[in-house]
């Protein structure tokens, strides 16, 4: 089975200079493991030690950002096209602060999503065991 993967300039040192390589897998996670068996080190540039997709890269399946498709759990099929691009970001703020904001946003989104459940849980839980709620 073949899935076409487009490699950005900065990662072509892992693919012998190739712009496009092929791999297989039922999920993005499987595909990156498969690619790493032939292009050792590539996976480590895309996936953090904690097992999440690195925030310095954007990965797309066909025309969709995989962050909206379940990230590493994104399902793949034969004939799909995967594109990897370096995320373009930065700014005057320190990296630690930017990372904190990203985490804060994720936490805020999670809280919003589960607000009803969280409200019930907080109501039920003893005060000392309440989950911390990010100030906003």
């Amino acid at each position: 089975m073949a899935i076409e993967v487009r490699i950005p300039t900065i990662l072509r040192s892992y693919t012998g200079g190739a712009k496009v390589v092929e791999g297989g897998g039922d999920t993005l996670d499987d595909l990156l493991t498969d690619l790493d068996s032939r292009h050792a080190g590539l996976r480590g540039r895309l996936v953090t030690e904690a097992g999440a997709l690195h925030r310095f890269v954007n990965v797309y399946v066909n025309d969709e950002d995989v962050r909206f498709l379940g990230a590493l759990d994104a399902k793949l099929s034969d004939g799909d096209s995967v594109t990897i691009l370096p995320a373009v970001a930065g700014g005057a703020f320190g990296f630690a602060a930017a990372a904190a904001i990203a985490q804060h946003s994720a936490a805020a989104a999670a809280i919003a999503q589960h607000s009803a459940a969280a409200a019930i849980a907080q109501h039920a839980a003893p005060a000392g065991r309440r989950a911390p709620v990010a100030a906003s």
């Binding site: 310095f56 930065g90 320190g94 990296f95």
Partner: peptide
């Protein structure tokens, strides 16, 4: 910034 350098891809 340090952030710019971290992301420069």
């Amino acid at each position: 910034s340090r952030t710019d350098v971290s992301f420069a891809g």
